[in-house]
Design a binder for these strands. Structure first.
Lengths: 335, 335
DNA sequence: CTGAAAGCGCTAACAG
DNA sequence: CTGTTAGCGCTTTCAG
């Protein structure tokens, strides 16, 4: 029951393998008649090209590697959906790897993906990634990489992000207009651009509204739910509690959310809360979470599009693209 | 900057490619000295075997295909984590595909995975899957398949499931003991085993407690949040409302949850609610959702283990294994 | 213990 | 328009 090969087709049609190969790929040289004959036999024998052999020959595969921190985060799951949508349409497959926020794993997976001869990479950096040498090595080998969401300035490549700055600005501005004056920020790892820009948006919103920036109201941490818990506990130690919290993302916001409630504080009565990301969870909380929506599916599609373009044009004069997508503040009961 | 090949190593060491190949794979024929020389040069030149070429030769790849309905469902995301954990340890990679609950996509992806020469498949069926011929074809080609969670009796293969029957029984029994008497069930697609067994658990719990089974209290639907919405709306049409709802899974429960609240009904005061799956969301609802926890991560690990065993032993006398994992009722505020 | 030769399934010059 | 030849990088007999 071994699958049919080009040789098999060639033999039963009295053609050479190369002719069959060309017919299959709709090469202009081949006569209409032979194409028909080849095609119909191929269908009959359920012939499918051996991608492995194809790849060995062409030095190219039709698989692209995706590295995300964690697929269980709805944001990334949705980005992956976007990527898949676009990429499968061109006959490509994706291999999804999770760094689990661990730098070493990220490095390991880039290795694995190289030895799988992926045509390109789509990457969102882990929280703990410091050096980007592992990616630069791939670029030197001619493997295109597009970064999304968690990007870095330390590498030249196409990037797709949302307007973190404006999103944060809008969120904090909204808090201020709603009357909150002592607004804390649960910030993310400062090596990630998203953390930087969201922090900057926070600061500038204060400034634009003539509110003082108080360093003690900014707590730095990670991007997970536990970081929200820890972060808010730190805020609890302040002499005067904040009246609102802007979290760097929804998981952190949820950590804070739980902790706030555990301490018997009311949302938004005692403390208002804003997140960033709009995972589907946020709307189910009681009260539902005000958050900055990111077009996650779109991010995936656009990043994939950029990558496919780069794969298909072996352009010498390639210039990295930088796409910034709009965010959208969703006001709900938590503010 | 082309990556180093076995030939390169052979040339600079004055050895034949075959010797180098053997040395790399720690073949007993090769002298300790040459092994050392080969290994150290390999390290120096950053040599990595070309998996593509390897596969072409051995007719085997070290990638395994995973087909799930949707990765954005936390349950499947967690299963995938379990799979990954086990599989990467043996140097394998996974290709994750989403059927998006569409039968045709499932068929399409099995094709793709075959032409990628995957070593095996891990599958959770889509809601709309009727025939299993596409999987049987793979089995005929000698590709092992292990099904998990969403399985079917119509195919012989190893399967990993949770004890859906007992889980449902425990959930409904809990409702009855808590005093609820008119318990509705939002059931899933009846072609899936999980729906069947959960429905059976529901029925038997009623019987064991001498409560009548009322067909009008069972609403059949899909497994998504919208199905919970639609399902509960149907229940609203009843002359007498149920006092509790057992949903086939958490997404459906959440759909019902939202709808219940929209209609101004109190949980659990007016209507109690139980789900199945324990996505992390369920604990964040207000009130938090009582649900039947499934060891999702474990399911992934065990399914992967079964598959790896089957891949590694080309045993003629292979007998499919059937693993049933325990569930665990988590009682929270919704009941 | 090592090497020479063949071939996995496919594509790509180069000839006709 | 079609066939011949060679080779991608690796493993694997079969000979030494």
């Amino acid at each position: 029951m071994a699958p049919a090969t080009i040789k098999d087709l060639a033999k039963t049609l009295n053609l050479s393998p190369s002719t069959v190969s060309r017919a299959l790929r709709d090469h202009p040289d081949i006569s209409h008649l032979t194409k028909k004959r080849v095609m119909s036999l191929a269908k009959k024998l359920d012939y499918h090209p051996d991608t492995i052999a194809q790849s060995l020959q062409t030095k190219k595969t039709k698989t692209i590697g995706v590295i995300v921190p964690e697929i269980k985060q709805p944001f990334f799951a949705s980005v992956i959906n976007g990527i898949e949508e676009l990429v499968y349409a061109s006959g490509y497959t994706i291999i999804v790897c999770q760094s689990n926020e661990i730098y070493d794993r990220e490095v390991l997976y880039t290795r694995t993906l190289v030895s799988h001869r992926v045509a390109g990479l789509l990457v969102s950096l882990s929280q703990t990634t410091q050096s980007l040498d592992h990616f630069k090595m791939l670029q030197r080998r001619g493997i295109p990489i597009v970064f999304f969401d968690r990007v870095s300035n330390d590498i030249e490549a196409s990037k797709v992000v949302v307007d973190d700055y404006k999103g944060a600005l809008a969120a904090v501005d909204h808090l201020i207009r709603a009357g909150y004056k002592r607004i804390a920020h649960l910030a993310g790892p400062i090596n990630l651009s998203i953390s930087k820009y969201r922090l900057k948006g926070y600061k500038d919103a204060l400034k634009q509204n003539n509110l003082p920036f108080k360093p003690e109201l900014v707590v730095y941490g990670g991007l997970d739910e536990t970081d929200g818990v820890i972060g808010f506990q730190k805020l609890l130690n302040l002499a005067i509690l904040p009246d609102a919290v802007f979290a760097v993302n929804d998981p952190v916001a949820i950590g804070a959310f739980v902790t706030i409630k555990e301490h018997g504080l009311k949302i938004p009565g005692d403390i208002a809360l804003v997140g960033f990301s709009n995972t589907n969870v946020s709307s189910l909380l009681e009260p539902p979470l005000t958050t900055v929506e990111q077009p996650s599916y779109e991010i995936g599609k656009i990043a994939a599009q950029l990558l496919m373009d780069q794969i298909q044009n072996n352009d010498e004069t390639f210039v990295p693209k930088f796409k910034i997508l709009k965010t959208h503040l969703i006001v709900r009961g938590s503010t």
